[in-house]
């Protein structure tokens, strides 16, 4: 019971710190998702249009995914010339993972589009770019967002790893709580992280619903639809 009370008291007492760390944490989780999508989608299209290069790109991206995150956080400042404490390192590292994961699922999504729809778009006189942006991409949204949801959850937990080398995030509540033997702080860290992951996931679900109204329009014909059809046939 003391335990619960400790947690409840911790939050208002450290509100400013929590707010700052949560902000840092969100920036480091969300930016890689945005950059990841912006980079992975065009790369996926290039990989599809250019088969041999595409195979190499997909293999390379899988390999990138196997590099441990801590190694990446330590290694990147050497390449980028950033400070080891900079959030940029985490953002870049997580963007690389995001691209690696999204590229494959985007290629699959684009490949799964009904060939009849694609042929029709060509026949209607779409230019390739316009077709990609207004036909292929919207139809890939469900698969794309499924990938993004995986990344969002992964990022929320991976950002904490940066705290090991001193990059500010909710992970600091763990490192700090460990050195100070302060279990309430660790518990709050876990709670807030969990909450962030849930909220972000919920937002992504809502985003998908907003972007794909057609997937919920039931093909099963309602009585109204049947009535309309009967009228059509009679006309």
């Amino acid at each position: 019971m003391d335990w619960v009370q400790g947690i409840v008291e911790y939050i208002p007492a450290n509100a400013a710190l929590l707010r700052e760390l949560t902000g840092n944490h969100l920036v480091q989780s969300i930016l890689p998702i945005v950059f990841g999508v912006l980079i992975a989608v065009p790369l996926a299209q290039i990989a599809r249009l250019n088969q041999p290069a595409g195979a190499v790109m997909l293999t390379a991206s899988s390999l990138l995914y196997t590099i441990p995150s801590l190694a990446m956080f330590v290694f990147l400042p050497l390449v980028l010339g950033t400070s080891i404490l900079s959030m940029v390192n985490v953002v870049v590292a997580l963007t690389i993972y995001a691209v690696a994961l999204l590229m494959r699922s985007t290629v699959d999504a684009l490949n799964s589009i009904d060939d009849g729809v694609r042929q029709a778009a060509v026949a209607m006189g779409y230019t390739p770019l316009r077709r990609f942006l207004t036909v292929d991409l919207p139809l890939s949204v469900p698969v794309l967002i499924a990938g993004v949801r995986v990344i969002s959850v992964t990022n929320i937990s991976m950002v904490s790893v940066g705290a090991l080398i001193g990059v500010p995030s909710l992970g600091r509540l763990f490192t700090d709580g460990l050195t100070r033997n302060y279990p309430e702080q660790i518990a709050v860290g876990i709670l807030v992280t969990l909450l962030l992951a849930l909220v972000l996931d919920l937002l992504l679900v809502l985003l998908e619903r907003g972007l794909t109204p057609w997937t919920r329009a039931t093909p099963a014909r309602t009585a109204r639809a049947a009535a309309l059809e009967a009228r059509t046939v009679a006309a």
């Binding site: 009904d114 009849g116 729809v117 042929q119 029709a120 778009a121 060509v122 026949a123 209607m124 006189g125 779409y126 230019t127 036909v135 919207p138 139809l139 794909t212 057609w214």
Partner: peptide, 22 residues
């Protein structure tokens, strides 16, 4: 130009080829 040429002709195919998201 291919795209413009195609817009000057209607095209109907066996699978309706309608855009499911529109």
């Amino acid at each position: 130009k291919a795209a413009e040429l195609r817009r000057s002709m209607g095209y109907v195919m066996q699978s309706s080829g309608l855009m499911p998201h529109r």
